[in-house]
Each structure stands twice: as C-alpha cells, then as structure tokens.
C-alpha cells in the first residue's frame, strides 16, 4: 500500500461509502419521500403476468451515483441510491433492462444493483451482514457484456447455491469497472467456491483473471480502520490538504 488512500481504492465496488452523514432538511424530506415510494412499492408485490415465465425470486433494480465535486463524507449512501423497479418474470425483467442504459454507457462514479426484492444493496441489511462478495475488476469496454451475463445467470438460478445469492452490482469507475456478486454466508466455503466456479464459467473469464472474495465485515473494518488511522495519526494540516485533493 503506497498511501492511506489506497485503502479506499481497494474496496471501490459500489458500497463502501455507507457513512452516516447528516443531510440537509430539504434532502431529508426528499429521503422521506423516496422511502415512502419504496415502502409503497414493497407493499405492492409484483407478480408474473398471465402467460409470462416466472422467476424463482422477485428482483429489484437500483441505481446509485456519487455526485461529482462533493466529498463522499457528506453524503448518505441511502440518499444516493435510487430504486428503479421490481419484476417477477422474465418478460418483466426484459422490459426494465431494455429501457435502461447499459453500464458501459454510464459516466462517472455510478453503480447498477440488482438485488432480490426485500434486500437492500447495503452491508447493513440483515441478509447481507454475515455475507460477502466476489469481486472482478474489468478493463474498460467489458462491463456491459459481463453484467448481462452475470444477471442472466443469477435470474436463471445457474449458481445452484439455494437461497445464498443476494444480488449483483456493476460499478463504473474512472479507469476500470467492477462487477460483484453478493451472498448471505461468507463463512460457507463450499458455497463461495461454487459461486466462484459458476462466475468463471458464465462470464467466460480467462484463467488468469483475478477474483477476490471479500466479507462485508472485513470491508466495514477496513473503512473504519482507515478513518481511525487517518484522523489519529495524520497531522491536521496534512488532513486538510488531502481533503482538498478529495474535493477536487
């Protein structure tokens, strides 16, 4: 690790910035409205239409984007994440998918999340807190194809690990893109190995592709440790200097 900022760079797959920043009043209202919307949509459980092909689980598309020019510390992760819609059948999935831009066309610090309905794409969610994720870093230009293959395998129940899969994320970053798949039990090695092998197969990855498994508790510790060391060991003047670099 060259400097302390590498710690943040290391876990850049769309979910590390789950801080508890205090939003402004107007932003709070917006969040409440969003929550209402999300709760209403939860109550209205989507069902497959007549003659449609049902999926094993209902899923929800989410989108998040970090506002450029603003440091992550003042933003709440939940505030940034937007629910796009839920579906229960193959046909309903294609309706959403065909009306959304492809990850490769996204700009800036953006993420698409596809999670089982009722599971939020956050570490803190009950389904995720004991879990982890497989991470694959992709060079630019591959994200759309890999994301499509990944979500088709997930919707088609190709991972064969029972209830273990929680969801998938594609994170568009400046120099690379990252795809990840989240599961419930990080300590279940048989499950994580099966997910890894299926990922290799469905994404048609070259043998030398680096795949990394990270538990969510490790990710949380990593960020906490970074914050602790940064603010306790770094001189105040240097902190301010670095904060300016982050902002710009």
């Amino acid at each position: 690790m060259n400097n302390k900022f590498d710690a943040l760079k290391d876990d850049d797959s769309g979910d590390h910035d789950q801080d508890q920043g205090s939003p402004k009043d107007s932003e709070k209202e917006k969040i409440e409205e969003d929550d209402k919307e999300q709760n209403t949509s939860k109550k209205k459980m989507v069902v497959p239409g007549a003659g449609e092909h049902p999926l094993q689980y209902n899923y929800t598309f989410w989108y998040s984007r970090r506002t450029p020019g603003r440091p992550a510390s003042t933003q709440s992760y939940e505030q940034n994440i937007k629910q796009i819609g839920s579906f229960a059948s193959v046909e309903q999935f294609w309706r959403f998918y065909s009306h959304m831009i492809r990850p490769g066309d996204l700009t800036g610090h953006s993420d698409f999340h596809l999670f089982k309905e009722g599971i939020k794409p956050m570490w803190e969610d009950d389904a995720n807190k004991m879990g982890g994720k497989w991470i694959i870093r992709l060079r630019k230009g591959l994200a759309s194809r890999c994301w499509e293959n990944l979500i088709l395998a997930m919707l088609g129940e190709q991972f064969m690990v029972g209830e273990e899969i929680c969801g998938a994320v594609v994170s568009v970053r400046f120099q690379e893109d990252i795809i990840s798949i989240w599961n419930k039990t990080a300590s279940d090695q048989a499950t994580t190995a099966r997910i890894r092998d299926t990922l290799r197969r469905v994404l048609n990855l070259p043998p030398n592709t680096i795949m990394e498994y990270k538990t969510h508790t490790d990710s949380i510790k990593y960020v906490c440790l970074f914050v602790f060391y940064y603010f306790s060991l770094t001189p105040l003047s240097f902190q301010n200097e670095k904060a300016c670099i982050i902002k710009h």
Binding site: G49, E52, H53, P54, L55, Q56, G85, F87, V90, E91, Q92, W94, R95, F96, Y97, S98, H99, N149, L152, A153, L155, G156, E157, Q158, V202
Partner: peptide
Amino acid sequence: RISYTRDFLIGLACCPEAKRKP
C-alpha cells in the same frame, strides 16, 4: 427451482411483452 439457461432467457427478449415500457 425455476431455472433458465442464458439462451432461453435471451430468446424471450425478442417477444413483444418484453419490449413494452414498464
């Protein structure tokens, strides 16, 4: 368990129901 292969799912993407805006 309801499972579908990739080819089967892609085959359904072309049907009119799959192109309607949600």
